[in-house]
Nucleic acid binder design. Sequence first.
DNA 1: ATAATAAAAGATAAAACACTCTTTTAATAT
DNA 2: ATATTAAAAGAGTGTTTTATCTTTTATTAT
Lengths: 147, 147
Amino acid sequence: MLSKSCVYSLRSIIFIAYHASKEVKVGIKEIAKELELPEPYLGKILQQLTKHKIILSVKGPHGGFYIEEEAEELKLIRVVEVVDGLDFFYSCGLGLKQCSETHPCPLHDDFKLYRDGLFTLFSNTSIADLVHKIDKGNAFIRNLTKD
Amino acid sequence: MLSKSCVYSLRSIIFIAYHASKEVKVGIKEIAKELELPEPYLGKILQQLTKHKIILSVKGPHGGFYIEEEAEELKLIRVVEVVDGLDFFYSCGLGLKQCSETHPCPLHDDFKLYRDGLFTLFSNTSIADLVHKIDKGNAFIRNLTKD
DNA sequence: ATAATAAAAGATAAAACACTCTTTTAATAT
DNA sequence: ATATTAAAAGAGTGTTTTATCTTTTATTAT
């Protein structure tokens, strides 16, 4: 559903929101190591997110990435939009170019239910929401051992 | 979500179920033209479906593809399984390798809801179900004009 | 000012997916 | 039997996604 670039993005942003601040930034190396992502590829992804002002970066010693407190209210859908685009949420389950209420594919209504549900989920959920779950120990973004 | 191969497969099977029988088969050319799919690629896809006995084929004059009456009860999930595999329906929304009830990602419960919903939809819906909708004029698999 | 650090940028490589072309094989109508 | 038809099979191309490598630029500590 979401591309690898997109899920890497989401997990990285969560990690940054959780571990970094304007005072203490986190670097590509640390993120890649902790989330077990390919480091150079992650570099490209974070570069893209920085360009779109979704995260902030500082070069040089003690440089790295962070996210502003307010920016944690950013909705997941915004990240999806920047990385993958929103095409999926407007697409037909059977790949029909023209599929609409007036000219629906035979799966239209049923598929729309879940596609719209996912759209609403990503639209209503913020990075902060996910960070809180991790904070409370109710969820994880790393592959094993504590978080 | 589903690959192009997969949606091409589903639409073709519906088309075959709707238009062909053991007596009157439909050829690649006709399917490709009606559904506006790349003909040689479609050939490969139908070849794969035939190999898996999802549809049947006959070579030579008046040859082509058809599907047995009973086979129309085939569930969509079986086609997805053969073409794309079922990985998506068991995968994590944030791409975590290990994501489970006991070690969930922060999106787990919400995402699971829709992922499972889609799985159930594809598991409960048969080709025949979709053909009926088209038959009644309530749905379409072609890009425009009547069906 | 200078050296060290870390991200940005650019160029390249590998893999997966989408698609095409050519040759072979099987079926059927004559 | 033979010619014709249409799918099967195999090899190959193009594009996108994922991933890597190298060089440059900006920042900071000394």
